[in-house]
């Protein structure tokens, strides 16, 4: 049998119009569920960038012995730079350390007055490519001749990583549940719509229509419902991004977390694309699945 796309498209459009109550039900289900998934994803992205920024603050500080020779310091620094895990090594001299302290204690000059000379050691500030490696690196660094003491926020860092791990896994699990619930909801709505038309399907089969002849208009109708629903959802998400995401990030600024705008924007458009695709695919597959039973005539 010849494939007649225009006939099928026409049938799909006509039945979308004629069964408009069910069409609205399906479209609004798709729109609402995809909107919720979209909102959740945006929240998860934002939370993730907050977590990343917190984690990136983790660094190792190696305090140097006052007696350490400049060559020793230099060779330790060179060795550190050669390690693949290390992103950056910054040398802070005794004078720079004192300057910083002065800056921090601006309000309490009496503290500085009580200090004689410069008791502060010079140090190496080591930032890492992957913050999770902080403990092993700190251990590996221990025992160098030039190094007096190593600090990386022991205890606190481990707790931070536990917290971020829990948040990430909770996000993944919740996202999975949300997607599953949405899928069930959408497929059930389509199932209801097709149940209402089961007699129509049976009649088509009894006058000699092949399964695919019955299926195509339903699939296209599902795609149409999915597309309209997802377009509504991304429209709403876009409006929310434009009108309120800015103020949300302002709110986060209070937490002193600089959010990464360009990256977030790129991911946002990617998300919109995926939502449209998801709408169309779920609409089509939902129709195929829901039809299966009624084609057995």
């Amino acid at each position: 049998m010849k494939i007649r796309p225009f006939y099928f498209i026409g049938e799909a459009l006509a039945s979308f119009r004629k069964n408009w109550v069910m069409s609205i039900a399906a479209v609004s289900t798709v729109a609402l569920t995809l909107f919720i998934i979209g909102m959740f994803t945006i929240a998860a992205f934002t939370l993730n960038s907050v977590i990343k920024i917190q984690e990136s603050k983790v660094e190792i500080v190696a305090f140097l012995k006052d007696s350490a020779k400049p060559e020793e310091v230099q060779s330790t620094q060179n060795e550190l730079i050669s390690w693949p895990e290390v992103a950056k090594v910054k040398y802070i001299s005794k004078e720079q350390a004192l300057e910083r302290l002065k800056e921090e204690l601006k309000g309490q000059p009496e503290m500085l007055e009580a200090m004689s000379g410069n008791p502060l050691p010079a140090s190496l500030e080591i930032s890492l490519k992957d913050p999770q490696t902080v403990k092993t690196l700190a251990k590996r660094l221990d025992g160098r001749a030039a190094i007096e003491e190593i600090k990386y926020g022991e205890g606190v860092v481990e707790k931070l990583f536990v917290v971020t791990k829990v948040i990430r896994w909770a996000g993944v699990i919740f996202a999975f549940l949300l997607c599953f619930a949405s899928l069930v909801l959408i497929v059930n709505t389509i199932r209801l719509a097709i149940f209402a038309r089961r007699k129509e399907v049976a009649i088509m089969k009894l006058v000699g229509a092949s399964n695919w002849f019955v299926r195509w208009p339903f699939i296209l109708e599902g795609v149409l419902q999915g597309l309209i629903g997802s377009l509504l959802a991304i429209g709403a998400l876009y409006l929310i991004k434009v009108f309120s995401l800015e103020s949300v990030t302002q709110f986060f600024r209070w937490l002193r977390v600089p959010l990464n705008y360009p990256q977030l924007t790129h991911q946002f458009y990617l998300l919109l694309g995926y939502l449209i695709l998801a709408g169309a695919v779920i609409g089509a597959l939902g129709s195929v699945v829901a039809l299966r039973r009624y084609l057995r005539v």
Binding site: Y7, N19, E200, I203, V207
Partner: peptide, 29 residues
């Protein structure tokens, strides 16, 4: 089934299609 025309006891007309479209459907098939 395409070689058999059948007038069903309950007619089985497609309710969403006009008389013309119902007849045309058998040809579309």
């Amino acid at each position: 089934r395409r070689n058999i025309g059948c007038v069903f006891q309950d007619l089985k007309l497609l309710p969403n299609k006009t008389a013309y479209e119902n007849v045309a459907f058998a040809l579309e098939v």
